[in-house]
Design a binder for these strands. Structure first.
Lengths: 197, 197
DNA sequence: AGCGGTTAGTTCAAATTCGAACAAGCATAG
DNA sequence: CTATGCTTGTTCGAATTTGAACTAACCGCT
């Protein structure tokens, strides 16, 4: 192994801030959702993702992949949402094995009712604190990171399978619920001194 | 309530990228640590945070606060690390109720052994993908967000208690293991159309 | 000293998540 | 058509995490 390249001061500061911010934000989001709608962030993400899909439905595996959650984890949450009547399971026409998670009318209403509060939190603690340039920078940064990770050999979660169909289910990007239907300091270091979180 | 201010295209793109990146990165980090050292990210963060404290020790509550984890959650993980001999519990001299989590020599060695791989992942998927300007932008962005959240009324996790002692335990910042000892598009929207994750 | 209100940590039950193991259904090469 | 191999979604057990409840210990006052 080459000498470990520790993080310099600027990198460490950025990383530490990132770690703190993500943990705090996750907590805030979770609290708001729980309080305002009894939903988990994970559950909310499911509803949101489904709402932006053609037909408001998606295969389990594809949904798990997009949400970056394990298949079993999704099975569990879909079960919860089904109990609440917010999502329904339908068998896939084209593939007998397949299961379609479908957002119900009630689920859509729940999402519409809950979304404002969620957006408010995201704005209050992040978006509204940033200049347009910073927003763009964040998009750029996070997009680069995402690309890097999706490219690298997949972990247990990712399905290395052949490219997903390019046609239909492309990620909504932004469109509305559209589908109507160490040795820290510099690099001089050797000792593991400061270590990122 | 005023009309909900939905996220515009740029904001939504930034937020979506953020959500995806954080989930993916958490997973990568978790995988690397698990594989290379049998540690959880949560456990690693505990060791790292302790290593940067004067005396390599910290009160349970303060540690939980800094790691943004619940007290009970920390109790559990400290128990795990204690079993592994990486951390020891010591009673606090000044407060009979208090418990000091102390990084053991073995814990320090484990951290030193594990850190390089961890840093490598952080670099490979994030830091090394960014220009110095972007690193600085990320620091700025995440610092702003963190400040906003730490300021706002504390959730269950945060202890509103009187300011913590300014003297000793200030956050290491960067120093080495120093102490030796919807209606997506524009804002025109009304419908909850696109909703962030 | 004795009280009432806080704070520190732990314990406990409930909820969640993940990976491994499975049962079933495709799909491709012979 | 059929043997083989991959995919899909679920089930199961183990590990984690959180909030509420609880015990012990501080703190400021009387």
């Amino acid at each position: 192994m080459s000498e470990t390249r520790w993080l310099n001061e600027a990198e460490m500061a950025a990383w530490m801030a990132y770690v703190a911010a993500t943990h705090l934000l996750e907590r805030r989001v979770e609290d708001q959702l729980k309080a305002d709608s009894g939903l988990t962030h994970a559950q909310f993400e499911i509803l949101a993702k489904l709402s932006a899909c053609p037909g408001r439905q998606l295969r389990m595996t594809e949904l798990a992949h997009r949400l970056i959650v394990s298949k079993s984890g999704l099975t569990y949450q879909i079960g919860q949402l089904e109990r609440k009547g917010l999502v329904a399971r339908e068998s896939c026409p084209s593939d007998e094995r397949g299961v379609l998670a479908v957002l119900t009318e009630q689920g859509m209403r729940c999402l519409e009712r809950t979304a404002p509060g969620h957006v408010a939190v995201v704005r209050a603690f992040l978006i509204d604190r940033l200049t347009p340039e910073e927003i763009e920078a964040m998009r750029q940064i996070m997009t680069k990171a995402t690309a890097a990770m999706e490219a690298a050999l997949p972990g247990p979660l990712r399905d290395p399978g052949p490219g997903r169909e390019p046609g239909a289910g492309s990620d909504p990007g932004t469109g509305p619920g559209s589908s109507r239907e160490a040795g820290p300091g510099s690099d001089r270091g050797t000792g593991p001194g400061e270590v990122p979180g």
